[in-house]
């Protein structure tokens, strides 16, 4: 363990200013959507206050992935046509693109790779949720998929100098990469991600997805299914090479996640084999 690195990371966490920011509208919308007393009109007004993000949101509403055919030209129409859950997902896509769509040096991800990875994991998570009768949480799985690796954006700087040590430790001790991150730097990218979501005032379920996506068996019982969905989607995307970085496949495929969702070998292979189509769909959002 490098005490000075741990201290520097602790310093970043303590000083919220040093963690990445996203437009306020994202957390407001996430909270409002969960409140049955808030009218759709109020949510639409809240979004429309932010002109820049509204433009991006409307573009996404009319993209191949989200569009229902009819041209959408206002947030009100978007909520009526696509539904509030879909619009909430689109708000998160628009709000997080800037911080995720960049080079992630220490993990050796070229510009756009982490963004593409998050979107692919989001699309696949939604698909798994629908396949395994979890349609009610498909939208949350999508949101969680986008941001699950957000901690990498902060930790990358430190991984750059310790990568060899982390990998050597993972190999010699037969532990997964995120566990080795924690041993060497005092923190792993899941924990940093959770801190970032706390700063953003995101709900507990999303924090759990980010915090446990490499160890779903440790998630609170109520969130086990949704964390398992994102865990499986992440695994399949990495196996297909989508957003695979220097940490490669030095991760664990959780048996608990497979059992929780009741995924058969056949279903796992079919989902993996369908990755080219997932990527096609994801490219409509990039």
């Amino acid at each position: 363990m490098h005490a000075h690195i741990q201290q520097r990371i602790q310093g970043i966490i303590n000083n919220l200013d040093q963690l990445p920011s996203i437009p306020d509208v994202a957390s407001k919308v996430l909270t409002m959507v969960n409140d049955p007393d808030v009218a759709f009109k109020a949510i639409a007004d809240e979004i429309s206050k932010d002109q820049a993000i509204t433009t991006n949101i409307l573009k996404l509403c009319n993209s191949a992935y989200f569009s229902k055919g009819k041209e959408i030209s206002s947030i009100d129409r978007a909520i009526v046509t696509l539904g509030i859950k879909e619009v909430k997902d689109i708000v998160v896509v628009a709000a997080t693109r800037e911080i995720l769509n960049k080079i992630i040096v220490g993990y050796d991800l070229a510009r756009g790779e982490l963004w593409k990875h998050g979107i692919a994991v989001a699309v696949l998570s939604k698909r798994i949720a629908v396949l395994k009768n979890q349609k009610a949480i498909a939208d949350i799985a999508f949101t969680g998929g986008i941001i699950h690796d957000v901690g990498k954006t902060v930790l990358a700087l430190f991984v750059q100098n310790t990568f060899r040590e982390i990998l050597d430790l993972a190999q010699s001790r037969q532990i997964q990469f995120s566990d080795a991150e924690k041993e060497i730097m005092g923190f792993d990218h899941q924990e940093i991600g959770e801190k970032i979501l706390t700063k953003w005032k995101f709900p507990e379920v999303l924090k759990s997805i980010v915090r446990y996506h490499h160890e779903p068996q440790k998630a609170p019982a109520e969130y086990l299914p949704i964390v398992s969905i994102v865990h499986i989607a992440n695994t399949l995307c990495l196996m297909a090479g989508v957003g695979i970085g220097a940490d490669g496949l030095y991760h664990e495929l959780s048996d608990a996640a497979i059992k929780t969702l009741g995924l058969t070998n056949r279903e796992m292979e079919d989902l993996y084999g369908d990755m080219p189509r997932v990527l096609d769909q994801a490219s409509g959002i990039l």
Partner: peptide, 19 residues
């Protein structure tokens, strides 16, 4: 080139041997 496997997986999961 390629054909990598997940670092850890249960042996009963056939996708684990796909690489």
């Amino acid at each position: 080139a390629g054909g990598a496997s997940m670092f850890k997986f249960n042996a009963s999961v056939t996708l684990g041997q796909i690489g």
